[in-house]
Design a protein around this nucleic acid. Structure first.
Length: 424
RNA sequence: GUGGCUGUAGUUCAGCGGUAGAGCCCUGGAUUGUGGAUCCAGUUGUCGCGGGUUCAAAUCCCGUCAGCCACCCCA
């Protein structure tokens, strides 16, 4: 037997109801905020990510699944959506349609990491991006959409961490100060942080080790070094959030693993995901579009992990079951039952039938297991008298009608929507 | 890439040197055309794979593969 590769999951019907609830909640929220859906490729030229995310980031240096096409060009399975959508935005000249464009997407992403709780090699994200405005309202809107989705899914116990990492101009000065601060104390740093000091000093603030914690607490704040423009932007965003009751926690140490962020960065975190704590994250990236060959276009966006949201939703989601189960007694009776299928399905009813079972008991058991609302019986008696019997499973009551009135009978039955709302 | 734990029926797990087990699921039955509860019966396994120790290995040892969890990093 061949098994699936590590960190890749099959999603079977027992999980799909809950899964779809997440995707539906995301889609309906995006549509409410006038974001438009995009379907973008799963594979890109690797350069989209190496340039977009930054050549020194972990994602690019050790987590990309890459392959060569027949012409020897490097392709990569997308490790995230933003760089890809920026490429598509520039390539399709979307900026010519509206001054501000709002998009959303969802689909699988790929990172060659060691799998663990809430972390897979093929995982799914949904995300949104807004292009064309520097106004902090849009930072607020992006956060509000994610907040709306989380609430729709009943996820309330999270913290929104908020920070500003400034723009390339003011950040340079801060990194210098930070490096100097840590350099003096490099003796007492953990090994990881010693390499961070050279590679990516900002990430020193992200270390979770006991050893480095005291140093972090006394490290200079980026907030004290960002320029006035960045600072005002951040204050406006915080005010919008506070004025509209979006709980947020100031996180002056929050830095992110991708190079393209400017100013706003945020994470939705929880303590219920083991080693992982973020289920959604994003920020502003005002220079990425230009870097990717477009004209200078500020932008802000976020992405959320569907599997992580799945883990955070408690309880199962009940399957709604089917409208009709057809019960027959074989032979002519089965043929007569089959003739009723098109009238049912063409009206949107859901139904099922087992052509092999002929005992009523077996079929009734199956109707019950399939959670059928109504059972339609065409047995030998019904066949002789040209009628059909309907049994309502919840009450157990049943009645018979003439077969020639079947269409008329159906008009009085409403289709039960196969929603995902029932939670146990 | 590094570390810890775990691999036994479809599934959750017990057994931890002496003939492979239980619950759930599944299938059938409890007067022949009626589900859910209960009861009864039944099916299902190269005990992850390879080697070693032993009269004897699911059980002990070594290797290997897989999964989970954690580090790193991230959604």
């Amino acid at each position: 037997m061949i098994s699936k590769p590590p960190g890749i999951e099959d999603i079977f019907p027992d999980r799909i109801e809950k899964w779809n609830r997440i995707v539906d909640a995301a889609r309906s929220s995006f549509v409410s905020f006038n974001y438009r859906e995009c379907i973008i490729p799963i594979m890109e030229f690797a350069e989209v990510f190496t340039r977009g995310l930054g050549g020194a980031t972990d994602i690019v240096t050790k987590e990309m699944f890459t392959l060569e096409d027949r012409g020897g060009r490097n392709l990569a399975l997308r490790p995230e959506g933003t760089a890809s959508l920026v490429r598509a935005y520039v390539e399709n000249g979307e900026f010519n349609r509206l001054s501000t464009c709002k998009f959303f997407y969802h689909g699988p992403m790929f990172r060659a990491e060691r799998p663990q709780k809430g972390r897979l090699r093929q995982f799914n994200q949904f995300g949104a991006e807004m292009f064309g405005s520097i106004d902090p309202y849009y930072d607020f809107e992006i956060i509000l959409v994610m907040d709306t989705i989380a609430r729709k899914l009943g996820i309330m116990d999270y913290t929104l961490l908020l920070n500003s990492i400034g723009c390339p101009e003011c950040r340079g000065g801060y990194i210098k100060v930070l490096s100097e601060y840590y350099l003096e104390k490099s003796e007492s740093l953990c090994d990881d942080c010693k390499t961070r000091l050279n590679k990516n000093p900002l990430r020193l603030l992200d270390c979770k080790k006991e050893k480095c914690r005291p140093l972090k607490e006394e490290a200079p704040f980026i907030r004290d070094y960002i320029c006035e423009g960045c600072s005002t932007h951040h204050e406006k965003l915080q005010k919008l959030l506070d004025d509209n009751n979006v709980r947020n926690t100031d996180a002056p140490r929050l830095v992110r693993g991708l190079d393209y962020y400017t100013r706003t960065t945020f994470e939705f975190v929880t303590d219920r995901l083991g080693g992982q704590n973020a289920f959604a994250a994003g920020g502003r990236y005002d220079n990425l579009v230009e870097q990717s060959g477009g004209k200078s276009t500020p932008a802000v966006g976020f992405a959320a992990g569907i599997e992580r949201l799945f883990l955070l939703m408690d309880g199962a989601v009940n399957s709604a079951g089917i409208d009709f189960y057809l019960v027959h007694s074989g032979g002519e009776s089965l043929n007569a039952a089959i003739k009723l299928i098109p009238p049912l399905t063409s009206r949107g009813f859901s139904m099922d039938i087992d052509p092999e079972k002929t005992s009523f008991k077996q079929q009734m058991k199956k109707a019950n297991k399939e959670n059928a609302r109504l059972v339609l019986i065409i047995g030998e008696d019904e066949l002789m008298e040209k009628k059909f019997t309907v049994k309502e499973m919840s009450s157990g009551s049943q009645a018979s009608y003439g077969l020639d009135t079947f269409d008329e009978y159906l008009k009085g039955v409403h289709v039960s929507a196969r929603r995902h709302e029932g939670r146990s």
